[in-house]
Nucleic acid binder design. Structure first.
Lengths: 239, 239
DNA sequence: CGCGACATACCAACTGGTTGGTATGTTACG
DNA sequence: CGTAACATACCAACCAGTTGGTATGTCGCG
């Protein structure tokens, strides 16, 4: 449930006894990453404003001194969290198998299938840290807002090539652009997280993603064939 | 800046002396409503956790005593705000003209057109207070989460009759249900607000609603005609 | 009708705990 | 040994909630 951090304490080298906070903690130099990981986890659960620096430090097993050594302020930390979120998710999606499909539409639908599969566990586990922070900070911090916008729209950008190839193959109507559909996809995902959070029922989040898949199919599938109902999702190995 | 209390120390009772904070303030009995209205406005802008009770009181021109007289706690206030939001928006949508269209699909698309038109000004003005609070409170307060869920899903419910009629007319594939499409619509709207907040560009929020309209048309329009591109929105009078 | 008893709506000041941030050590590593 | 990476102790501001009080409306009863 926790994710990172849990079982990896044992770099502690008790021999040589340079004991520190590492009864369960990190080796020197890992405080920053630990704080960022903890930040993603805690902010996804409670939001940014409701999260205190002390909680962050406790979750990362470091002290406040370490926090303000690495981050100028809580706001700067939030910006770093957004960037950290962007880079860790980017690595994960880059390694996914949907890129290997031959047809561009299958790559697009494979992405959707993966997103649907990722909706599992509690909302704090499947929702988007950037989307959450956006809601809280858009009016009070341009730095946070822009970092979140980068996370969301850069990720959308990773869909554009497949989408524009699929649009070309399907000869879809000219009002659907690759960039627009990529953003629409992110909008539906963000909205599905909100429905999932509100209802405390992840099937409602998945349902929205299912309608998104159906919509994309209607737009991107070769016009002659009627769009069939829900497909069985491509099984995605989680390497 | 102080608000209430300003001119009232003098109990001077100029004429019969029923003077109160009403130099600019409210009459007796309006504090509760004023606080709720202020709550919607401030929470849409800054979120729930970042909003202090003092700020709420300042915005509503009342004192903290009045706040805690009407609301047991900040959490109870948030629940009341969600219900207030639900009822005020319900009144607005019930009075809208899209209900008057003859064809069910036109009522559905009229709703979408209205939603698109409502996206104007700053995100704090067009976004959903219930969606915003959901993100912050889903893990920390069941009462708030449920009040927000009611606001969102009850509103979705107002679309179901038109959607199921439209589905029947269009003989749409069986995997699209009225309730599911209604929820999907809300998901897209919530997501569009997030994109609008992140980008600080309402045209991106409107764009997502445009794709939603296109998707609904593809699903709900009689199958023989190919779905045309974006329609010019039905002009909606704001009586 | 008048008047006392009560209830409601509010207000100013206060409180105890919390929060983001700082000032000042201390420790490991190159 | 110098510097980056921490830790400890502390603080001033702030925050949700309380207290004790006042002004105003309302209701029952003689």
């Amino acid at each position: 449930m926790r994710a990172a951090g849990e079982g990896r304490g044992e770099a502690r080298g008790e021999a040589r006894g340079q004991a520190r906070g590492e009864a369960r903690g990190q080796a020197r130099g890992e405080a920053r990453t630990g704080l960022l990981d903890a930040g993603v986890a805690v902010i996804r659960q409670r939001g940014l404003a409701a999260t205190t620096v002390d909680e962050l430090c406790a979750a990362a097993h470091v002290t406040k001194g370490a926090f303000f050594h690495h981050f100028e302020s809580k706001e700067a930390f939030a910006v770093a969290v957004a960037r950290h979120w962007a880079s860790t998710t980017a690595v994960m999606f880059a390694a996914a198998t949907y890129h290997q499909a031959d047809q561009p539409i299958d790559r697009v639908l494979g992405y959707i299938d993966l997103r649907e599969q990722l909706i599992d566990g509690s909302p704090a586990e499947y929702s988007c840290a950037a989307g959450t922070m956006t809601q809280e900070a858009f009016a009070t911090s341009v730095a946070i807002r822009e970092a979140c916008a980068d996370a969301i729209f850069d990720h959308a950008g990773t869909l554009e090539d497949d989408l524009s190839a699929a649009i070309a193959v399907a000869r879809a109507p000219g009002d659907a652009t690759a960039a627009g559909l990529a953003r629409y996809t992110q909008a539906v995902l963000q909205g599905s997280f909100i429905l999932g959070k509100a209802s405390d029922d992840l099937s409602l989040a998945r349902e929205a993603v299912g309608y998104l898949r159906d919509s994309l199919r209607r737009i991107l599938e070769p016009a002659q064939t009627a769009a069939p109902p829900f497909s069985s999702p491509i099984i995605q190995e989680k390497t």
